[in-house]
Amino acid sequence: MPAAAEDRPGAASIVVRTAAATLGAYAVAYFLTSALTGGLFRLGLDRADSVMSASSIALLVFPAVSIWAFAERRLVVVAAAPVMTALILAVLSAVLHP
């Protein structure tokens, strides 16, 4: 850890920011996995392969989103992802398994 200028955030601030980035990024990855799986399967991919490739991609997206959330100050957007995830999953589920 370098000697770059840092403020001294409170414990609550650190916990909230770390949790928002981690859980938000997880939610994005969670949503992305479902959407990608559905999309790849629709494109004609074998269903086991759809699951595998979508999950692998989402696992790379997870750290990228965490970093982006910190760097671009989008913690609120990322933290709201669980709600988006639940909604879109419900729609996807209704479409694919009516």
């Binding site: 969670y30 996995t33 479902s34 989402a58």
Partner: peptide, 8 residues
Amino acid sequence: LPSAAPVV
């Protein structure tokens, strides 16, 4: 990421 398999 247990969200993928239930989709298909």
